[in-house]
Design a protein around this nucleic acid. Structure first.
Length: 739
DNA sequence: ATCCTGCAATTTTTT
DNA sequence: ATTGCAGGAT
């Protein structure tokens, strides 16, 4: 099915699942349905339940990664893994790679683990094996990556861990090496459905093809104009290949849009028309006319944020659309800062999605690492994270010695530490500390290994003395303590749901018979909880929580969502389209599709904005309007400017002139100066400010500029005294009360 | 030798 | 804000 934005493709998929179960009498566990986010899976499940009047127990619905993890928990033994394998997130993978680099004498400075990981991940997504990768490797970085890639698979297996990419690749390996397992799953799932098919990568498509091969009951829904994950290995060409791979395919086009007004579609169609590589389709709607699109020109990002915030507040007051019905979308996460500051200062409710996830807080990661270690004693990354938390007097040198020994013995760190007395060259106190960690983990595992995650968490907190450890950190520790409580509460809530829905637990019995390897077999609650936590993303949080207000998120995360009022911010050349992305082949077209996705999120009213100057990468940069703006038909646009000196035609002319390499007149100094003066000294000596941790104080001096703008503040609290703070990070507020 | 404190750098998009 | 790194203190 080729379905345009807002044409109701999710509704169609949902109806199909319900139809299969109710009218065709298909058991829910025979359906394999892939969605793009966990959140979407949850919603779709709820809608199916509503249509059926009962929860579709046993239905396999989720992201590729989540479904694959679920399958792998059951099949791990065939691949040489334990069913208790850990899923490494990007951080884990990076530090794991860092250690592999170290071991090989490759400098992490010259070969940043992040870059190495990116290279390996790209190779995996294209299903390029290490050997193949090594052959084509040229340049020192790629060579280093090839070396690490070759060692990565065995090392991960030794740690009983898989990274995100492995979740997709290991099922393929399983099916290749164990035809009986392939056959089992092929017959287990009689129908396969895939949403957002345009963003499927090779491994994912292969998986789908394999599962659907015997029966061909495969239904995919996608929109080539919304393919925005090419950089992650997704390939739109799968949509074209589909009809050849599955002869007899029925192609259905949905071109009626039920979401947006004609004005908004005119804007979106205008932009996407700039792309050459399209299957070709033009959306239409019954909602003729509509409010015009507002295009704002702002002086800088702060000005842009102020105007948008004020405008949305005005709208919320004057129309029946509440703050929850509005969103501001942007290209990069960095842009959220100015927006967030403004919203906070003005006291406007907002919901920032994606910048820093709850699960990325230190205390949460610490505790989850303990949990991972309880579930999987071979998880070296988890071990290294917690071995000295709280401080146990274990230093870098001792750890290096431990790692060396573990490598020699070919054993996981925790196992080595359990016999710490046999590790050579350790000081007695360190040896004792090591033994203590081993004992502690073992104790929790023995007593609570089979318990629900909340209970295990509480046991860890208790045995480790984590609350006390946080309490000793002072005021900040108290805040972290709240997060810990929230984590435990969340785990308890999860366990409750998992127990009642039980669709995985229930199916384990039936499944055990089919597994040739018996033994432990089933998955524990703890393993399932850790899977879920590893695969949950900020995007999945977006509905939850009491927080409601204007949504702030990247355009990528907005895919599949909609709001009555949407603002697309930062429409500048170099930012959107992003300079780096447009350099790559097909990059500009992908940026254009991304813009199209952003525009089509709006139901009733669309704002577009750009800023003439913006802080980027610590520099104060002049910008020009995005080329995408030119493609928006002038007839549907109403222009606004915060300072009325600029006009759109002139800027386009200027850009055109630059393109033709005609020498430019000097930039008008008038507004350059104005912009600087507007932004530079937000703080002046003598002003009273307040800091989150340090309390109130007086600004004594201001130095530096841009991102390195510093203020010297004399705090009221004598204990704290005078400090130099980096404005960009200090989160200072003006202190009105005690002025 | 080891630990701790203060300083610099970080960000394109995400499972 | 968080993480990694250098240099001083123990």
């Amino acid at each position: 099915m080729l379905a345009g934005a807002g044409s109701g493709k999710t509704r169609v998929l949902t109806a199909r699942i319900a139809h299969l179960i109710r009218d065709r009498g298909l058991a829910p566990q025979r359906i394999f349905a892939v969605t793009f986010t966990n959140k979407a899976a949850g919603e779709m499940r709820a809608r199916v339940a509503a249509l059926l009047g009962a929860d579709p127990r046993g239905l396999w619905i989720g992201t590729f990664h989540a479904l694959a993890a679920r399958l792998l928990r059951r099949e791990a033994a065939h691949l040489g893994f334990g069913s208790n394998f850990t899923i490494y997130d990007a951080d884990d993978s990076e530090s794991f790679i860092r250690r592999l680099l170290d071991q090989r004498g490759l400098s992490p400075k010259a070969n940043p683990p992040r870059a190495v990981h990116a290279l390996i991940s790209a190779a995996k997504n294209r299903m390029i094996a290490p050997e193949e990768f090594a052959v084509t490797a040229d340049g020192p970085l790629v060579r280093a990556a090839a070396e690490v890639y070759a060692a990565l698979g065995p090392a991960l297996k030794q740690a009983n861990a898989m990274d995100f990419d492995d979740l997709l690749l290991h099922p393929l390996q399983l099916f290749r090496e164990h035809p009986d397992r392939l056959s089992y799953w092929q017959h287990r799932f009689e129908h396969v459905l895939v949403d957002e098919f345009q963003d499927t990568n090779s491994a994912q498509y292969r998986l789908v093809k394999l599962l659907a091969a015997p029966h061909g009951n495969l239904c995919v829904v996608g929109d080539d104009d919304q393919a925005i994950y090419g950089w992650r290995g997704a390939d739109v060409r799968h949509m074209l290949a589909f009809q050849q791979d599955f002869p007899g395919t029925t192609l259905i086009k949905l071109e009626q849009n039920y979401r947006s007004t004609q004005v908004i579609l005119d804007a979106a169609n205008g932009v996407i028309a700039g792309n050459v590589q399209r299957l070709g389709k033009t959306l239409f709607t019954a909602k003729q006319g509509g409010e015009t699109v507002t295009l704002l020109t702002a002086a800088d990002e702060r000005d842009e944020a102020e105007w948008l915030a004020a405008e949305l507040v005005r709208r919320a007051a004057e129309t029946d659309v509440p703050h929850e019905g509005m969103a501001i979308l942007y290209r990069t996460n960095a842009q959220s800062r100015a927006l967030e500051e403004t919203f906070r200062r003005r006291g406007i409710p907002y919901r920032l999605v994606g910048a820093v996830s709850f699960y990325e807080r230190r205390e949460v990661k610490d505790l989850l690492a303990y949990l991972r270690l309880v579930a999987n004693p071979a998880d070296d990354e988890a071990f290294l994270r917690v071995v000295n938390v709280p401080r146990r007097g274990i230093g870098e040198a001792s750890l290096a010695q431990l790692i060396r020994t573990a490598a020699q013995w070919g054993k996981p760190l925790l196992a080595v530490v359990a016999t710490a007395e046999r590790v050579p060259d350790l000081r007695p106190n360190v040896r004792q500390a090591f033994a203590g960690v081993a004992r502690l983990v073992e104790e929790v595992r023995a007593r609570f290994g089979e318990a629900d995650p909340a209970t295990v968490l509480e046991a860890v907190i208790d045995v480790v003395g984590y609350e006390q450890y946080l309490a000793e950190e002072g005021a900040e520790g108290i805040e972290r303590l709240d997060n810990v409580r929230e984590l435990v509460a969340g785990a308890a809530e999860w366990a409750e749901e998992a127990a009642t829905d039980g669709d995985e637990a229930g199916e384990d019995g039936a499944l055990k018979d089919s597994l040739t390897v018996g033994g432990e077999g089933g998955t524990t609650l703890l393993q399932r909880y850790l899977t879920q936590v590893a695969l949950v993303t900020p995007a999945d949080d977006r509905g939850s929580g009491a927080a409601n207000g204007v949504t702030l998120m990247t355009v990528h995360m907005a895919k599949g969502l909609e709001w009555p009022v949407v603002a697309l911010a930062g429409l500048e050349d170099g930012l959107f389209p992003l300079g780096r992305a447009s350099g790559e082949p097909g990059g500009l077209e992908e940026e254009r599709r991304l813009c199209y996705v952003g525009l089509t999120r709006a139901r009733e009213k669309l704002y577009l904005s750009w800023a003439r100057t913006r802080y980027r990468n610590g520099r104060f940069e002049l910008a020009e309007p995005s080329r995408f703006l030119e493609a928006v038909p002038a007839t549907v646009v109403e222009e606004r400017t915060t300072t009325p000196r600029w006009d759109r035609a002139a800027a386009f002319a200027q850009r055109a002139a630059r393109a033709r390499r005609v020498p430019l007149e000097p930039e008008e100094p008038a507004w350059a100066v104005e912009a600087v003066s507007q932004d530079a000294p937000r703080y002046v000596a003598g002003e009273r400010v307040r800091h989150r941790k340090f309390g109130s104080g007086v600004v004594r001096a201001v130095s530096g500029s841009g991102r390195s703008l510093k203020v010297t503040v004399a705090f009221d609290d004598q204990e704290i005294g005078t400090k130099q703070l980096l404005v960009a990070y200090a989160g200072l507020e003006r202190d009105w009360e005690s002025a």
